[in-house]
Amino acid sequence: MIELFSLEFWIAILFFINFILVILLFLFVKRMNRLNPGEPDQKYCDDGCENAKYASGSAVDIIEMLEPLVKESKKTAISFDKQIKEKKRLIKELNDALDSRIISINLLLSRADALQKKLEVRNNQFNLESSSNAVLDQQNQIIEMYNQNFDIDSIAQRLSIPKGEVQLVIDLKKKIVEMEKNSR
Rank of each mutant, 00 (worst) to 15 (best):
residue 117 K to T: 12
residue 122 R to L: 12
residue 86 E to G: 00
residue 120 E to F: 07
residue 127 N to Q: 15
residue 79 S to A: 13
residue 83 Q to E: 09
residue 104 S to H: 09
residue 82 K to L: 03
residue 101 R to L: 07
residue 103 I to N: 14
residue 134 A to V: 02
residue 93 E to T: 01
residue 118 K to N: 15
residue 125 Q to N: 14
residue 115 L to Y: 07
residue 111 R to W: 01
residue 84 I to C: 02
residue 106 N to V: 06
residue 85 K to G: 00
residue 80 F to Q: 06
residue 86 E to C: 00
residue 85 K to S: 00
residue 84 I to T: 03
residue 81 D to Q: 09
residue 122 R to H: 03
residue 81 D to N: 10
residue 78 I to L: 10
residue 77 A to P: 00
residue 127 N to A: 12
residue 124 N to Y: 09
residue 75 K to L: 14
residue 80 F to K: 03
residue 93 E to R: 01
residue 95 N to K: 10
residue 131 S to L: 07
residue 103 I to T: 14
residue 81 D to L: 15
residue 99 D to G: 05
residue 131 S to E: 13
residue 137 D to R: 15
residue 124 N to K: 13
residue 131 S to F: 02
residue 104 S to Q: 08
residue 113 D to C: 02
residue 89 R to K: 12
residue 85 K to L: 01
residue 139 Q to N: 13
residue 122 R to Y: 05
residue 138 Q to I: 08
residue 81 D to I: 13
residue 100 S to L: 09
residue 106 N to K: 14
residue 139 Q to M: 08
residue 120 E to G: 00
residue 100 S to M: 08
residue 136 L to E: 15
residue 88 K to S: 02
residue 77 A to M: 05
residue 116 Q to V: 09
residue 83 Q to S: 06
residue 129 E to D: 02
residue 107 L to S: 14
residue 118 K to S: 13
residue 139 Q to P: 02
residue 139 Q to R: 10
residue 127 N to R: 14
residue 132 S to E: 14
residue 126 F to R: 11
residue 90 L to D: 11
residue 117 K to R: 05
residue 133 N to V: 12
residue 85 K to V: 04
residue 131 S to N: 13
residue 125 Q to H: 07
residue 76 T to H: 08
residue 96 D to L: 06
residue 86 E to Y: 02
residue 96 D to G: 09
residue 99 D to Y: 07
residue 91 I to F: 05
residue 78 I to F: 01
residue 140 N to A: 14
residue 97 A to Q: 13
residue 138 Q to K: 15
residue 129 E to F: 04
residue 126 F to Q: 06
residue 126 F to K: 10
residue 107 L to T: 15
residue 83 Q to A: 04
residue 133 N to L: 15
residue 114 A to T: 09
residue 88 K to L: 04
residue 136 L to S: 13
residue 89 R to C: 00
residue 139 Q to D: 09
residue 128 L to N: 13
residue 118 K to V: 05
residue 94 L to Y: 08
residue 140 N to K: 15
residue 127 N to D: 11
residue 102 I to G: 01
residue 109 L to H: 05
residue 86 E to F: 02
residue 107 L to D: 14
residue 106 N to E: 15
residue 138 Q to R: 15
residue 88 K to D: 01
residue 125 Q to V: 05
residue 140 N to T: 14
residue 78 I to E: 03
residue 135 V to G: 01
residue 95 N to Y: 03
residue 136 L to T: 12
residue 115 L to S: 09
residue 132 S to F: 03
residue 118 K to P: 00
residue 94 L to H: 06
residue 126 F to S: 11
residue 91 I to D: 10
residue 129 E to R: 08
residue 77 A to Q: 03
residue 90 L to A: 12
residue 107 L to V: 12
residue 112 A to S: 06
